[in-house]
Write a protein that binds this DNA or RNA. Structure first.
Length: 942
RNA sequence: GGGCGGGUAGCUCAGUUGGUUAGAGCACUGCGUUGACAUCGCAGAGGUCGUAGGUUCGAGCCCUAUUCCGCCCACCA
């Protein structure tokens, strides 16, 4: 037999790449039931997740690490349960972000602009760029252990998905749910494209509020208005929009301005005449109580203009420069025109005052400049019918959102949704499949048309715009599976199971997938939406480039020099951040938070979880050594993936020790809890419980006890090694979805140690629930068996702890073996039976350990410990004196009596009548134990 | 303006059918290192669970009000 020569510390650096390669090459990420392969069984329900497409411009950030951790956990869990599981990877083309990035890149490297290259060449360059850099992100996702089926990887602009986009557009168009027309939209002057409402971000900023006079024309509408000293004071943040004013509005009941309603006002400088109108929208209390109406550049004004049939004047071009409607200001930038116009108004005596004012300004998500509302001809999706269906799917419970509170957010958004502007004036994306002829007819279709479908003209040209990236992302769950083709994948894997993503894209993406899924496939694209929170820094700040507080996940995996770290992290790690490996990062992200809540990533927590991975490793090394030490007869670890109890092993308690029974009882409880928690999406709590079990129960107690058993040799050693092996194995299985690498590595060693080789990966091994529920290898000895074993073992633990406690207080060297006398009437049998174990754990000298059922005479010069009805005597030789000993007992007695008092009061109250019997019984038992203790201590003090 | 989340140990956070002595990690104190592990072990100290009421035999958990922090939606010039 070969001696195990494993490093003392877990070496994740060499392990992780090797293991991942083994998985991927071994085909372990493939669904176990594949519709494209022989032997396919359509009756078996699969588990399917479509990855939230990271965009191709991206570098890995902690948001990616988060979704990969959660989705990989979900997938591995279902896979281990024997469910055919598919995780579809891919990325989206991220229209604006990618185009900007490539533009910048070309400008820097070749000093050439997009316009100079021309559309065709630019798109070609962008594809080159995508091919070159697009794989970086997917490789980084592999580093995180993602068990995706990479053969099914998709990209939103690839051929199949582009077909899906085309199909979706044509269907909506033909149904009348897509229309084109001039509307007031959000325009990004920097990017020169329309953006949707969702892509506009409002920030509180300080602005200037300008007060000025809207002079009224003389009665009868005389243009020589300036001689008339009648005016309405108006306030605005944007004086340049005065150029596009088509009315001044006041509240119909406003006493100050009522008299002006119906008269005519004069637009400053331009001297256009506009009506004074009444509208209840105007608030009398705010500002001056009068409102200038600029329908061409303000959504609210636009709505008012519709009501009053006012003309709409656009005063800016696509660069937000004043156009021909702006008279003398034509050609000036909007902010330049603002200043110039204000100055001219000052000269004309029309200004009142300016004041500082804090308001919310709309900026574009990407470019960051102030959005200009503008009238522009764009494509829209008529969203109401889609939204209604999407609303119903969640209301009816066909789609469940976790955590539930986000359902309210979802409802609120869909109930107030406005039509979706889907056209973008970009080059990188799906070009709108509509062609125009010289007569203004529009033609669309699944294939590119050669002539106009209305007039037959062959002089047709395609729309220049592309579709919003989210239009294609909205098709993701089914387009990636082959839709609109009825492919075997689509038929088998659709609808998918879970949609897992960050709550920040609930509207952008999730709601749109639901709407489009219902519209095009007639089915909910998934039945569960699980939303995770945002990863923030340890102070709760959003990580961002401008703040410079971002943590790169790769630093966490591979380590980073101090210079690379943000200030706060450099302070913590002046020597640089140590490499901590994938498992540590994953376990942290999965256990440090709760669903839907933001998570403040604490690097020290990752460090402690790296220690946990190492603890697992060393637990594994111990067990491997134990198996090794048995010599000739290797343990049957099981029968591979579909392991069943060997004959006769589940018959009864057999030769299980108390510790064996206890650890199995705890494990059984753990497996049940983990299963329940997984079912209710409480992955964090599940992970914490497994960690607690492994570290506190298994490593700290069972392994320590097993050392004695292994030393005893023979059947005892064999039995202990058997339990060690199986409990380790089951713990590793439970942990595998959290920390796949270290568990897989240990599983490989374990398997070899017991000379099994038919199962190569944990990915194909049974989830412990299936085994535990079957009751094996827990011997079944009737009701309450588990509880009684746990209670017995807990008593032993208490005895051991109290002895250790005294030794620590009294400075007795841990290495020193001391004599002891343990006296118990009730538990004499149990203690006698477990005396070796107690002695070993508490550092007692076995030859000087006496276990008695009663005591004739109290031992002299001894410290007395009391655990319930049990008394323990330890000689004071080498410890502190007796006087001190009395003080200790006094203190303990006082504490015990306080507890007795509390419990007696409780049991004397209404509690005893109204609480459930089991609860009362528990308190009674506790009271009895305290009373026993108090009695024994009192006796000692006499 | 509407809505949501959070406030628990020095720090970062758990605590999901309300059960009576509130947990973890890190940090801290004492002791310990040739046999799985110092990326460790044993023992310990540390909290009136934001505040005020209420329901209940019993509240960190449920209800009401209130305060602070964060976020989302809407966008009154």
């Amino acid at each position: 037999m070969t001696k195990q020569e494993l490093p003392k510390a877990y070496d994740f650096r060499s392990t992780e790449p090797r293991i991942y390669e083994m998985w991927e090459k071994g085909g372990y990420f493939k669904p176990s039931n594949d519709p494209n392969k022989p032997g396919f069984d359509p009756a078996v329900k699969p588990f399917v997740i479509a990855i939230p497409p990271p965009n191709v411009t991206g570098e890995l950030h902690l948001g990616h690490a988060m979704f990969v951790s959660v989705e990989d956990l979900m997938t591995r869990y279902h896979r281990m349960k024997g469910i055919p599981s598919l995780w579809v990877p891919g990325s989206d083309h991220a229209g604006i972000a990618t185009q900007l990035m490539v533009e910048r890149h070309l400008l820097q490297t070749e000093e050439v602009t997009r316009e100079e290259l021309g559309r065709e060449e630019f798109v070609k360059r962008t594809w080159d760029w995508k091919k070159k850099y697009g794989s970086i992100i997917t490789n980084q996702i592999r580093r995180l252990g993602a068990s995706c089926d990479w053969d099914r990887e998709r990209f939103t602009l690839d051929e199949g998905l582009s077909r899906a986009v085309r199909e979706a557009f044509v269907r909506l168009y033909e149904k009348g749910l897509i229309y084109r027309g001039p509307r007031l939209i959000n325009w990004s002057p920097g990017l020169k494209t329309a953006v949707s409402d969702l892509e506009v971000i409002y920030n509180e900023e300080e602005a200037t509020l300008y007060y000025f006079k809207y002079v009224l024309a003389g009665r009868g509408g005389s243009p020589s208005a300036r001689t008339v000293d009648e005016y309405i004071p108006v306030a605005t943040i944007r004086p340049e929009t005065i150029l596009g004013d088509t009315a001044v509005a006041v509240h119909p009941e406003d006493e100050r301005y009522k008299k002006f309603i119906g008269r005519t006002a004069i637009v400053p400088i331009l001297n256009r005449e506009i009506p004074v109108i009444a509208d209840e929208y105007v608030s009398r209390e705010f500002g001056t109580g009068a409102l200038k109406i600029t329908p061409g550049h303000d959504p609210n004004d636009y709505a008012i203009a519709q009501r009053h049939n006012l003309p709409v004047i656009s005063v800016m071009d696509e660069a937000a420069k004043i156009n021909e409607n702006g008279g003398p200001y034509q050609g000036q930038d909007r902010f330049e025109a603002r200043e110039k116009l204000w100055k001219d108004m000052q000269d004309a005596g029309l200004v009142i005052k300016t004041e500082k004012y804090v308001t919310t300004l709309p900026r574009t998500q990407r470019g960051g400049e102030i959005v200009e509302p503008m009238i522009s001809t764009q494509w829209f999706v008529k969203i109401e019918p889609l939204a209604k269906a999407a609303l119903k799917a969640v209301k009816d419970g066909r789609i469940q959102i976790v955590p539930e509170r986000f359902e309210k957010v979802y409802f609120n958004w869909l109930e107030n949704i406005k039509d979706w502007c889907i056209s973008r004036q970009l080059w990188w994306g799906h070009r709108i499949p509509v062609w125009y002829c010289e007569n203004g007819h529009m033609t669309t279709g699944r294939a590119d048309p050669t002539q106009c479908s209305t007039c037959g003209s062959t002089d047709i040209h395609q729309d220049e715009d592309v579709l919003d990236t989210w239009f294609s992302s909205g098709l993701w769950p089914f387009s990636t599976l082959g839709w609109p083709e009825e492919t075997p994948d689509y038929k088998y894997f659709y609808p998918t199971s879970y949609m897992e993503t960050g709550y920040d894209i609930l509207f952008f993406w999730v709601a749109r997938m639901i709407m489009m899924g219902l519209e095009f496939t007639g089915e909910e694209p998934f039945h569960t939406v699980y939303l995770h929170g945002t990863v923030r820094d340890q102070f709760g700040r959003r990580m961002s480039k401008t703040t410079g507080n971002g943590i790169d996940p790769l630093w966490v995996l591979d380590g980073a020099p101090a210079e690379a770290l943000p200030d706060y992290a450099r302070k913590q790690y002046p020597q640089g951040l140590p490499a901590m490996g994938t498992d540590a990062l994953r376990f942290t992200l999965l256990t440090a938070g709760t669903p839907g809540n933001d998570l403040n990533l604490n690097l020290e927590k990752v460090e402690s979880n790296r220690n946990f991975a190492n603890k697992l490793w060393n637990g594994g090394r111990f067990v491997l050594a134990a198996i090794d030490s048995l010599g000739a007869s290797p343990l049957p670890l099981g029968e591979g993936a579909r392991r069943r109890p060997p004959k006769g092993e589940s018959a009864g308690e057999g030769d299980f020790t108390l510790a064996d029974s206890w650890i199995w009882a705890r494990l059984q409880e753990l497996v049940r809890n983990v299963e329940r928690l997984f079912q209710s999406f409480q992955y964090g709590e599940a992970g914490r419980q497994i960690q607690e079990f492994f570290w506190s129960d298994f490593a700290d107690w069972y392994v320590e006890i097993a050392k004695q058993e292994l030393a005893a040799g023979g059947a005892r050693a064999y039995r202990a090694a058997d339990t060690l092996t199986r409990v380790l194995d089951y713990s590793l299985r439970l942990l595998h979805p959290f920390t796949p690498f270290v568990t897989e590595e240990l599983w490989g060693h374990l398997r070899r140690a017991v000379k099994e080789n038919e199962v190569l990966s944990y990915l194909t091994v049974d989830w412990p629930e299936a085994l535990i529920v079957a009751g094996w290898p827990m011997p079944r000895a009737g009701e309450g068996w588990e509880a009684s074993k746990v209670a017995d073992f807990s008593l032993i633990q208490e005895i051991v702890r109290s002895i250790r406690n005294l030794r620590a207080e009294r400075n007795v060297s841990p290495a020193k073996r001391i004599p002891a006398t343990i006296v118990s009437k009730e538990k004499h049998g149990l203690i006698k039976e477990q005396s070796d174990m107690i002695a070993a754990l508490a550092g007692l000298e076995t030859s000087q350990l006496s276990i008695l059922s009663s005591l004739k005479e109290k031992p002299q010069d001894s410290a007395a410990l009391v655990v319930g009805s049990i008394e323990i005597y330890l000689p004071l030789a080498g410890m502190l004196g007796l006087a001190d000993e009395r003080a200790r007992l006094d203190k303990e007695l006082t504490e015990t009596q306080a507890q007795i008092e509390r419990l007696e009061k409780l049991l004397g109250s209404d509690f005893a009548n109204k609480a459930p019997a089991a609860v009362i019984e528990k308190e009674r038992a506790r009271l009895k134990a305290f009373k026993d203790t108090a009695g024994k201590i009192t006796a000692q003090l006499k």
